[in-house]
Design a protein around this nucleic acid. Structure first.
Lengths: 114, 114
DNA sequence: TTAGGTACTATCAAAAATGTAAGTAATGCG
DNA sequence: CGCATTACTTACATTTTTGATAGTACCTAA
């Protein structure tokens, strides 16, 4: 989906290399990531529970955002060999290290939006 | 630039309404915003200083991101009635209240990216 | 009168993110 | 066999973000 050598991609990469803040913001900054992280902070959840808990997400978007966060090591995907399938999502240690930051972002947002 | 009634826009608005974290992330989450905020945290700067300090920004992008942050009340634009023109950008009180959060995002990023 | 400096705008194009709708695989149960 | 359940995929369309390039307004000083 990403072109390897577009200026767009190169700019993104350079910024993330130079600047921890940029890196942090892209790992948690997708449209549905806050909604997912918020819920997983309270405990592990199944795919269908997440889907039903988050209004208006499409399955495609949910999966995309879960995959990205898994790749970035924020969450862990646990598959049970059952039929019908069961898959649970859970925060990793790295993901949990974000908790205080997520909390302070959330508090700041609640205080500052209109 | 934004369509008023696209599903995309409505989803964004709903999430920001429900979730302070989403609101916070969109106010600081543009491509060049971290780079700008980082520098303005150290003191006010002229437009041309910002432009020269941030590698690879185009003027168009720089202005767009500055305008958005001004609208969101994070930074303040100070125009001097001189020729040639002089314009300075500076953090507001609201912007400064983000400092500890920006710092912790930055630290987290520095520790966690590869 | 013309060139120079500053802070922009405007137009167009490319790329990326998000949304829509339908389909798939595996297996136990009736 | 045919259906139900769960967790996805796939193909495509739309919307949004980002980038490339050129041009503008203002006054001053030469």
């Amino acid at each position: 989906m990403r072109k390897e050598n577009s200026t767009n991609t190169l700019n993104k990469q350079n910024l993330e290399k130079e600047c921890g803040m940029s890196y942090a913001l892209t790992t948690i900054g997708g449209r549905w990531k806050p909604a997912i992280l918020w819920r997983l902070c309270k405990g592990k959840m199944r795919y269908s529970e997440l889907r039903d808990a988050i209004p208006n997400v499409t399955e495609r978007m949910l999966v995309l955002q879960l995959r990205e966060m898994e790749k970035d090591g924020l969450i862990k995907r646990i598959v049970y060999a059952e039929v019908p399938p069961r898959v649970e999502y859970e925060m990793t240690v790295k993901g949990n290290s974000l908790r205080p930051i997520l909390k302070s972002l959330s508090d700041w947002g609640d205080e500052n939006r209109l």
